[in-house]
């Protein structure tokens, strides 16, 4: 699914555009532990988190992850946006909480059928 469609589904604001707005997203992984994000991140993965520090960009860069989604309207550290720009990772923020964000993304990606990504 195109990143654009997922951004619309959660009413997110794009703080830092990635390499292409038409990026294909196949999976979403949500978490607040860097180790867990690192293990699950990869090409075609959107990481959803309430963290907002520069290490998120580092994880995305190392694992070729195209987009970071911050929940709860979290304001990112300016250095996170700089680092994300350098490695062409998109950063979006939405005001919804983690549960609601994940629910909407899941529905959009997989419909009403339960499917573990």
């Amino acid at each position: 699914m195109k990143l654009e469609e997922l951004i619309q589904a959660i009413d997110a604001q794009v703080l830092q555009p990635g390499s292409e707005r038409g990026t294909e997203i196949a999976r979403v992984f949500a978490g607040d532990k860097i180790s867990a994000l690192l293990e699950r991140a990869g090409p075609g993965t959107m990481l959803v988190t309430s963290l907002a520090n520069t290490q998120l960009a580092c994880v995305a860069e190392l694992m070729d992850c195209p987009v970071l989604c911050l929940v709860d309207g979290t304001e990112p550290e300016p250095k996170l946006l700089e680092a994300a720009a350098r490695c062409e990772t998109a950063v979006v923020v939405c005001v919804l909480d983690m549960f609601e964000t994940c629910g909407r993304l899941h529905r959009r990606l997989y419909g009403d059928n339960f499917r573990r990504s």
Binding site: K33, I34, L37, L51, Q55, L56
Partner: peptide, 12 residues
């Protein structure tokens, strides 16, 4: 606070 310290470093 930065998201580290999950105790997954060495196991990972």
């Amino acid at each position: 606070q930065l998201g580290f310290g999950a105790g997954m470093g060495l196991p990972n």
